[in-house]
Amino acid sequence: MTSLTVIRRRAGRWALNGAAGLALAYILLPLIFVVWLAFFRQEIPSFPPEGYSLKWFAAILDQRKFVDGFSLSFRVGVLATAIGLALGVPAALCLVRYNFKGRGPLANLLLLPVVVPGVVLGTAMYVFHVEAENALDVDVLGTFYALVAGHIVIVIPWVVRLVTASLVGVDRAIEEAAQNLGANAWVTFWRITLPSIRPGIVAGALFGFVTSFGNLEMSLFLVGAGRTTLPIVILQYLEWKIDPTIAAVSVIQILLIAIAMLVTDRYVKLSRVV
C-alpha cells in the first residue's frame, strides 16, 4: 500500500468519526444547555452567565407542583409497570410457545399502542372515558385509575416486545428436562423459565416505566383538576417562561433516568434490547 492510500484512509476515518461526533453532539446539545442553565446565578437565561449557584435546586421544593407532579408520575409509572408486567409477560410466553390461528394479528394488536400517535391515543381515551362515565354513572374521566389504565396500554408493547425477544433465545429442552425430572408446570416456570428471561423482564420494566414516566401527549387528555404528571407540569411551565428552576427539575430527572439506565445495563446490555 502506498503512503498516499494510507493517508487517504486515515483522513476518511477522521471524517467519519467527526461526522459521528457531530451527530452525537447534536443529540446531546439541548441536554447540555439545560444542565448548564440549572447552575446559573441570575434568573434570566442570558449569556455569558453572571455567576453560578446551587440555589435553584432548593427552589424546586418551594413549588408544590413539581413535587406533586413527580410523586404522581412515579406512582402511576410503578403501578402501570407492575400491571403491564403481569399482563405482558404471560402474553409474551403464549406468543412464543404456542402456535395457533391469529397469533400474528394478536401480537400486532399488543404492539399497536406504540404506533398510534400519542395525541390520537389521548383523544380516543378521553372520548371513551366520557362515554363510560355516562353509561356507568361513576367518575372515570380524570381519575387516577383511568390515567393508570391508559399508561398500562403504552407499557404492554415494551414488555411483550422485550420479553418475546429474550424468550426466543431460551432452549425449550431445559424446561422439558425439568418436567421429565418431575417438576410441575408452575415449578418449571418459577425455577427455569423465569430466571432465563429475567433480562427481558428487567429491560421491559425499565423501558415501560420510563415510557410511562415521560409520557406527555396521551396524559394531557387524561389528567384531572389538581392532578398533573411531571411532564405536563414542565410543559405548562415552559409555555410561560424558562428559568433555572425548571432546568434544575430537568437535571434531577436526567440524573434519575441515567442511574436507572446504568443499573439496567448491568443486568442486560442495552445494546441488545434497543
Binding site: 439541548p30 447540555i32 439545560v34 430527572q253
Partner: peptide
C-alpha cells in the same frame, strides 16, 4: 438517554 428525558425538556435546551 435523551429519548427518555422528554421532548419538553429538550425543547427547553433549544430555548436556552
Amino acid at each position: 438517554l435523551p429519548l427518555f428525558v422528554g421532548n419538553a425538556v429538550r425543547s427547553a435546551g433549544w430555548m436556552v
